[in-house]
Amino acid sequence: MSDGLADGYDLVIFDLDGVIYLIDKPIPGAAEAVGRLRASGTSVAYATNNASRRAGDVASLLTGMGVPAEPGEVLTSAGAAAAVLARRLPAGAPVLVVGADALRAEVTDAGLTPVSTAEEKPEAVVQGFGPDVGWKVLTEAALAVRAGATWVATNTDRTLPSPRGPLPGNGSLVAVLRTALDREPDLVVGKPQPGLFTTAASVSGAERPLAVGDRLDTDIQGAVGAGMDCVLVLTGVSGPADLLAAPPERRPTFVADNLGGLFRAADDARLPLDAGSAGGWRVTVEGDRARLDGSGDPITALRLLCSATWNGVPVTGVEPVSPDAAALLDSWGL
């Protein structure tokens, strides 16, 4: 047995957007990482806030990218939202769907009746991401909620990662209704709520699951809330500056450049690194300043600096000493 980070876990739960792919393009090394886990006997699951695809469609997309997946390994916020509504509403109850066809299909499969207008007197509004969501359906949703319909959001991700940069996500669309209604949704189903993680672990029978995500405010916070160890990979939304500023409920167990970090030693990724110096880097803390000197692996520098900022040094107090430190902090936007 090797001493890789993932070897200490019996299930790895992956987020998708920003971890395995960006919209519809695989992230380099993702297929190889998942294949390596499967070859070692480690179970794999996928938990996504994106409500625009059904589990079977996600599995087909992954398989087409060289990442073999079964529908039963995929948990989506669309399916979770429909299941929640099915438990709360009588069979056949009308539900106004704001989102993609995948969300409408999940509502139908849950034994409820998808509708499109407030005049159809929906008992609930379920809102998920859809690239064609526009003013007309948002208007109907606002009218329905004002009339007393329960408002359920699949997730509140502000952005979606893409090869072109962050794009508006479902949270941005939820914000439209939040502004119009001057209130919050009655329920948010997806991450950072822990349900997708705990369900994945329960379905697989895992005793020691590991979550992997690219967003501190959803993936990592959800895993922390579920009591799971977790890895932040820097291939999606959250970057080093975000990690340095993370509050306790959004602090991952490990950090890695990409999924290759799952097969390196756990102690080379664990957060924070309190040694003061390691791998050619040194961090000196003086009051509200943390000075970074030296040169080496950026992840090591990040782990050292997390020790400083998570213990009270403001991110604005991080300063470079060496030229390599200056270049690194500049690349992080600091």
Rank of each mutant, 00 (worst) to 15 (best):
A6V: 14
N170W: 01
M65P: 08
R282A: 15
P28W: 06
P248Q: 15
P272G: 04
E73C: 05
W151I: 01
Q127F: 07
A256P: 05
P320M: 03
A81H: 01
D229N: 14
D17E: 14
G29Y: 04
E70W: 08
V231T: 03
F14Q: 07
T198C: 06
A147D: 15
D288V: 09
A83H: 11
S77T: 07
L160F: 12
I27K: 07
D217L: 11
D24M: 02
R251H: 14
V137P: 02
P161V: 02
V224T: 14
W151E: 03
V321A: 15
V231D: 08
T108L: 14
P185M: 06
W135D: 09
A206Q: 03
D219V: 06
N311C: 00
T179A: 11
A82I: 03
D217T: 15
V34H: 07
R264E: 13
R38L: 13
P194G: 03
T42Q: 09
R158L: 15
S238D: 10
R36Y: 04
A327N: 14
D274A: 15
E73N: 06
A93I: 02
V98I: 03
K136C: 00
A91Q: 15
G205F: 11
P122Q: 02
L177G: 03
S40A: 15
P192A: 07
L259Y: 12
G333Y: 13
V285R: 12
A81N: 06
P90Q: 13
V188N: 05
T284H: 06
S52P: 09
A325S: 10
V188S: 02
A206I: 04
T113N: 12
L62N: 04
T139S: 06
F263S: 05
A100Q: 00
I220M: 11
T309M: 03
G41F: 13
A266P: 10
T108V: 15
A86T: 05
A6R: 10
L22M: 01
M65S: 08
C306P: 09
P28M: 02
S2I: 00
L328R: 13
V189W: 02
D15A: 12
E207N: 09
G92Y: 03
A39R: 15
V137G: 05
V189R: 10
S277K: 14
A55D: 04
G279W: 03
L262K: 12
G213N: 10
R38H: 10
A147G: 15
R87L: 10
V126D: 10
I23F: 09
A265K: 14
A223K: 13
N311D: 04
T42M: 15
R289A: 11
V95L: 00
L37M: 06
A153V: 00
G276Y: 11
A81R: 01
P28F: 00
P26F: 04
